[in-house]
Amino acid sequence: MAVGRPREFDADQVEDIAMKLFWDRGFDGVSISDLTAATGVNRRGIYAEFGSKEGLFERAKRRYVAGPGGYVAAALSRPTAREVVEAMVHGAADATSGDPHGCLLVGNAAGLAEFRDASVHELAHRFDQAVAVGELSDVDTMSLARWIAAVCQGISIQARSGATRADLHAVADLALSGWPRR
């Protein structure tokens, strides 16, 4: 059995650099040449470790969800639907107003639409639970989830366009004023 050369780079570091590149420029705005230049890893190393640009993007996406985008999972663990939504919209304001601005997941790379749709369904399920215990009145939980997702995505786009963190929190507060009453 032939033994290959040992890997001469830290895959976590490459994922982190790639995450920031994809976040800043979008999937289509980053080439393999960009990745090799930013990471110092040659094409062969990128392909050997990640399989493809798409494979590296998938790992960068998981890193984003566990790191800067982690506010979503934290929000879903809040005790009330209102607290879930507050944590989501204000979490979006904080996460997307850093550097780089915007959200890695608001784009059109392969798999992102499905990922966003799954997130909406997860949020709607959380709202279904709130309806079941009487915390929310009988509302269309899927529409409510899509509304909150649209607010968070809009916050991301405004961040990328230069809105300040304070501007984004003001948008979050305004959106929360439309939250359904019992």
Rank of each mutant, 00 (worst) to 15 (best):
A75E: 00
S52Q: 11
A38C: 09
G69R: 08
G111F: 01
N42H: 07
K53F: 10
H125A: 13
P68W: 13
V84K: 11
T36M: 05
R116I: 14
E83P: 15
K61Y: 12
A38W: 04
G70S: 12
A118C: 02
V85C: 13
F115L: 12
L112N: 01
D128Q: 05
Q129S: 08
S33D: 15
H101K: 12
A93L: 10
G45K: 09
T96F: 06
G91M: 05
A92V: 09
G111Q: 02
A48F: 10
P79G: 05
S97V: 03
G107S: 10
G51L: 09
Q129R: 14
G55F: 15
T39D: 03
L21G: 02
H121D: 08
V41H: 02
R78M: 15
R25G: 03
S77E: 14
E49A: 15
G134N: 07
V106F: 07
V131Q: 06
V85A: 12
G45D: 03
Y47L: 15
G45S: 08
R126H: 08
H101M: 08
R59W: 07
Q129K: 14
A87D: 14
L76N: 10
G40K: 03
M88V: 09
F57W: 12
V106L: 07
N108K: 05
L76I: 13
R43A: 13
A18C: 07
Q129H: 08
G134S: 06
V84Q: 11
F22H: 03
S77L: 12
D28Q: 08
V89D: 01
V65G: 05
Y47D: 02
M88A: 07
A60N: 05
P68T: 15
E114D: 10
D128S: 03
D99H: 06
E114P: 00
K61P: 00
P100R: 05
G55Q: 10
S31C: 07
E114H: 03
I46M: 15
V30H: 03
M19V: 04
W23C: 00
P100Q: 05
T39F: 00
N42A: 12
P100L: 03
N108H: 10
R63P: 00
A118V: 08
K53H: 06
F27V: 14
F22Q: 01
V85M: 10
F27H: 07
H90T: 04
V41Q: 02
E49G: 03
R116W: 01
A48H: 12
H101V: 09
A73S: 15
P68C: 09
Y71V: 05
V106W: 06
W23L: 01
D99V: 11
G70T: 13
L104E: 00
Y47T: 09
G69P: 04
S97L: 01
V41L: 07
R43Y: 10
L76C: 10
A109M: 07
P79N: 11
V84Y: 06
A74N: 12
F50Q: 03
V131S: 07
A75F: 01
D128C: 02
R25D: 01
A95C: 09
Q129P: 00
P79R: 13
V72T: 13
G55S: 08
K20I: 12
V65A: 15
A113L: 06
V65T: 14
V84A: 08
V106I: 13
H125S: 12
S33N: 10
A37F: 06
D24K: 11
L21C: 03
P79K: 11
R78S: 15
G29E: 04
A110I: 06
V41P: 02
T96L: 04
